[in-house]
Nucleic acid binder design. Sequence first.
DNA 1: TCTGGGGTCCTAGGACCC
DNA 2: TCTGGGGTCCTAGGACCC
Length: 419
Amino acid sequence: MFALADCNNFYASCERVFRPDLIGKPVVVLSNNDGCVIARSNEAKALGIPMGAPAFEFETLFSKHQVQVFSANFALYGDMSNRVMDILGEYTPEMEIYSIDEVFLKLQGFKYVDLHAYGLNMQKRVTKSTGIPISVGIAPTKSLAKIANKIAKKYTQQTRSVYIINSDELRIKALKWTKVEDVWGIGRQHAKRLCALGVNNALDFVQMDKDWVQKHMSIVGLRLHQDLNGIPTLDLEEVQPKKNIATTRSFDKNFTTLDELKERVTTFAVSCAEKLRKQGSCCNSLSVFLHTNRFRNDLPQYARSMVVQLPFASNSNYELVKYANIALERIYKLGYHYKKAGVIVFDFTPEDATQLTIFGNGNPNHTAIMHTIDKLNALYGRQKIKLASQDLKRMWVMKQEKLSPRYTTNLKDIIIVKC
DNA sequence: TCTGGGGTCCTAGGACCC
DNA sequence: TCTGGGGTCCTAGGACCC
């Protein structure tokens, strides 16, 4: 059996842990630059605030219903996630952290354990120990555990946030209850196509012809089809080193000059290099993109990206910055208002296995200095040591007007309890 | 005025090899 | 009129996830 433990309204719940006065009140968390809504408490959902809602469009609704609005505080969410995962890890030797707020637990060899009681225990313990409410779904396969979790979340009262699918009867009932577009792995495109064929719920889907599924939804769809039929096809996945690493940002205003963009792209490339070093990888290629604001119909639109192959695998700030800027200069066009840019690195080789060449390929060895920069930045704060071509005056601060304190990761922000 | 930021996998088709 | 039969690698694009 598999269990899927999923934190309820995770970011909103994190904000509430240290602000218990917000329990029962609508809470939303915004994306970077305070752009859109990326998390909502149940009360906020009930007000009809959709996922991804642009914050500025909902300002009147926010103030009318006294919605508590927060800027994204990823330091807090990451730390709270670790706490939740640590506790859940005690319930099984095999788990897969699927996202910041979700984890699959493999319950193999639990034949003589009352899994429902086991689920209730983990649910209670996480909620009590961290203040984060979670839901638990248990079923014979991962995709069915996903569905069980959805049921637990929807019927909190009746299920006490734990639901188990442990018979074919319950499986059929759950599949029938699940709309096809809500199935994990069936996105908008496939849902549209399936609905047109009269396949409206997950039960309809599992009864479809295998060949059709494979033909139109590839091997991925076929695996899901099997898994939902109760044949375990999707197993836990091990943590793999990343194959792509990206740093991309929207700007809070439009940029027009090459110099402004150069500074941003330089900072993004440095950030990618840092992430590469953290994972012990070097990249052989990178891509730079930039585009104008796609929401502004009154301005001319332009978007381009360019891939650069490095002559050697690297994770040096200097090298990545150099090649990222070469790409930027090629794709930059004067006369446009740029809103977003990014750097993506890919085609990795492990740091300790980069190819040497007999005649030398000009790959300078920056290992020592990068190591020193990383160490200093770890000690004295991120971006303490920067390249001169980066934003030295710290002009580009993200819009984060409603940021909560870093309660758990910054000594200055630890709460004071008066008793 | 203001609209996020990351990731993964699969397939078809073209270019190329012998 | 008639024009082989295998392969591999790479890329773009499409689908999906949180």
